[in-house]
């Protein structure tokens, strides 16, 4: 116990203890399922189905992970998801900067009209079927384009980026650059994006997460299995419990063992599919607060 605590009055001590308790309860209830899933994924399949896992892996194995590694469809999906996420996010961020910078300029003639056109789409949409018919008419159905182009821009992120540009890029900088003969295109490329690291990091995370996690568009726009992103493959396995038994190792005759392995496969899959984003996340976490605050300051 540190000195500050000892010097507190009795009610304050009680408050501190109670507060610590509440936070601990909230923390544990968020953290425990995560721990459990990770531990289960490293455990022996029998231990998982018989309920022996509580906190740490029981009789640690990599059985589940090797089952995932042998599951072909998962890796096809993984590869597709990486492609969609990298290409999609690059386009997303580029388009967002292109739209956000003019909207951040006071002297942009027609700014308010553009702003209204952008904002209106956040309040009203044509709906599922007209979107589907459009993609169909553009000939994008069942192609990579359907995964990248229809979601090329999120208006909300444009607003966040615009607000950030307005706040952090002083008018004097633009004037000085213009005096030196810098045009608007050069200004965006050489100065704006170089000064906007934090916000670009945040919107990149938002877009990357949205692209990586997205399943619905893939479900309605794609037919061929070799174009499926990881989330669609996961949907079959995790949600519909539709697992290709031929992909599982071990004696096919041993039904109980196979059922156990299926469960283990799911836990390992949950971990593997979430890791790519979580690797990226600590680098961006410190900027999240900034992103959320800027987003709330719209207008």
């Amino acid at each position: 116990m540190n000195i500050a605590f000892r010097n507190e009055s009795l009610p304050d001590k009680l408050f501190t203890i109670l507060n610590g308790l509440i936070i601990t309860v909230l923390f544990v209830s968020v953290f425990y399922p995560i721990i459990y899933i990770v531990s289960a994924s490293f455990s022996d399949s029998q231990a998982v189905v018989s309920g022996e896992v509580w906190l740490w892996p029981v009789r640690p194995t990599l059985e589940g992970y090797s089952a995932v590694f042998n599951y072909n469809q998962v890796w096809v999906g993984f590869k597709n998801s990486v492609i969609y996420t990298v290409a999609g996010t690059a386009i997303n961020v580029g388009m967002t900067v292109l739209a956000a910078y003019p909207l951040s300029r006071k002297d942009f003639y027609g700014k308010n009209t553009f702003m209204i056109l952008f904002m209106f789409t956040t309040m009203f949409t044509g709906g599922l079927i007209p979107n589907y018919l459009l993609v169909k008419q553009l000939g994008m159905l069942d192609s990579v384009w359907a995964m990248i182009i229809p979601g090329a821009l999120t208006v909300w992120n444009v607003i966040i980026a615009r607000t950030y540009f307005q706040m952090s890029i002083p008018d004097e900088l633009l004037e000085a650059a213009q005096l030196d003969g810098c045009n608007d295109l050069q200004f965006v490329w050489k100065i704006v994006i170089r000064l906007s690291g934090p916000i670009l990091a945040v919107i990149t995370l938002y877009y990357a997460a949205a692209n990586w996690n997205q399943y619905f568009n893939a479900m309605i726009y794609l037919k061929s299995q070799d174009l499926y992103p990881l989330q669609l493959v996961l949907k079959d396995i995790l949600v519909k419990n539709d697992i290709d038994v031929a992909m599982l190792a071990g004696d096919p005759a041993d039904a109980a063992k196979r059922e156990a392995l299926k469960t283990l496969l799911k836990y390992s899959l949950i971990v593997i599919s979430t890791v790519p984003l979580l690797l990226f996340y600590p680098f961006v976490q410190k900027y999240l607060v900034k992103g959320v605050m800027v987003g709330s300051l719209k207008g």
């Binding site: 968020v30 996690n213 399943y215 989330q231």
Partner: peptide, 15 residues
């Protein structure tokens, strides 16, 4: 820890 689940996909959450 509490921020992290926000970025888990819906499919995985339902799983």
């Amino acid at each position: 820890v509490t921020y992290a689940p926000h970025f888990i996909s819906i499919v995985v959450i339902v799983g």
